[in-house]
């Protein structure tokens, strides 16, 4: 099936999103998640043995899916430049190593990242994207106009992708329409002067949502409001991306495409540190939603330390000997 990008307030769901009551009725009408079943399925998919050639491909794919991230208060332009250099050439010793999907930085670092990546105006095809977190990341506790300004600034500075956080307080107290309208507003703020639009990733912060049912509802909410991606976490809260949570989110994007024909991407972030973890996620993507999602356009890893482990595994497979952390950059 050829997937199209979602648009805000897709007509299919005009009724469901018309009022707070209707939205609540819809979200609470979604089938509940069997917690034990989801955890068991995630655990059993994690035991798959991936053999050499598949592993080689999985590692290269995982590298292409990495959103290389630095989201610290102590970020400096120098660190962002180093990160951008690493995103373009993760393994300087090996030109065959693919570059990562994007670098993910705070909004004020977008200009630095673009410059370091050598980005000029125009197409994003075939280059490392610049993703910026916005909307008062990571807590999301700010007035709406601040969040929108935050987003517009990042888009204006040249961000290709915006990672927004939902208002978990509003979500948990049942004000779903408020969350919905906020995502729609941010989505509109992603539109550039020339009419094109930055891709929007909606961070659910699943570690704060308490239940898998809530994860499913938030996933649908993010997709109904027109998010291009739904993302697990900010990385600032534990637990972050866990396999059962990804399973629930993948089921949501699968069901959403079955209903609307629109494909939405998924981005686990936080806590994925080893190649083994990454490969478990890829196995789950393939098993739950199929190979349509096995592409950097539809599945991403938000990570910083993961990349080094992927590079070490890649080097191990190429040289036949174990590599060590001494041979890769720290950040």
């Amino acid at each position: 099936m050829k997937a199209t990008a979602p648009s805000p307030g897709a007509t299919t769901f005009a009724q469901e999103t018309a009022s707070d009551a209707a939205l609540r009725r819809f979200l609470h009408g979604l089938p509940g998640v069997d917690q034990v079943g989801a955890e068991q399925r995630a655990a059993s998919l994690g035991t798959r043995s991936i053999k050499t050639e598949s592993k080689r491909q999985a590692i290269d794919l995982a590298i292409r899916m990495v959103d290389l991230t630095t989201l610290e208060g102590m970020d400096t332009p120098g660190k962002v430049r180093a990160l951008a250099a690493k995103a373009m050439r993760p393994d300087p010793a090996d030109p065959s190593c693919p570059s990562t999907a994007a670098v993910c930085v705070y909004g004020d670092m977008v200009g630095v990242a673009r410059e370091a990546l050598g980005v000029s105006a125009g197409s994003t095809a075939g280059r490392v994207h610049v993703a910026a977190v916005a909307t008062a990341f990571p807590s999301g506790r700010a007035p709406l106009d601040v969040k929108l300004t935050d987003t517009r600034d990042a888009v204006e500075a040249g961000a290709d992708e915006i990672d927004m956080v939902i208002d978990r307080g509003a979500f948990l107290s049942g004000r779903y329409l408020q969350v919905y309208e906020e995502i729609v507003a941010v989505r509109e703020a992603c539109v550039r002067a020339d009419g094109s639009s930055a891709h929007l990733k909606v961070i659910l912060e699943t570690g704060e949502l308490q239940t898998y049912d809530n994860v499913r509802r938030a996933s649908w909410l993010g997709m109904l409001a027109g998010g291009h991606f739904i993302k697990t976490s900010t990385g600032k809260i534990q637990p972050a991306a866990t396999l059962p949570v990804i399973l629930v989110m993948l089921e949501a994007v699968r069901d959403f495409r079955d209903t609307t024909g629109q494909q939405v991407g998924v981005k686990p972030a936080g806590g994925i540190r080893t190649s083994k973890d990454a490969i478990k996620h890829l196995v789950m993507v393939n098993e739950v939603v199929g190979s349509d999602w096995l592409d950097p356009d539809w599945f991403r890893f938000g990570a910083s330390t993961l990349l080094n482990d992927l590079l070490m595994q890649r080097t191990k497979m190429q040289t036949g000997r174990y590599s060590g952390p001494d041979y890769f950059t720290l950040d």
Partner: peptide, 9 residues
């Protein structure tokens, strides 16, 4: 041999 070739040893 795996220990002898290990780059972190």
């Amino acid at each position: 041999p795996w220990l002898a070739s290990h780059m972190d040893v």
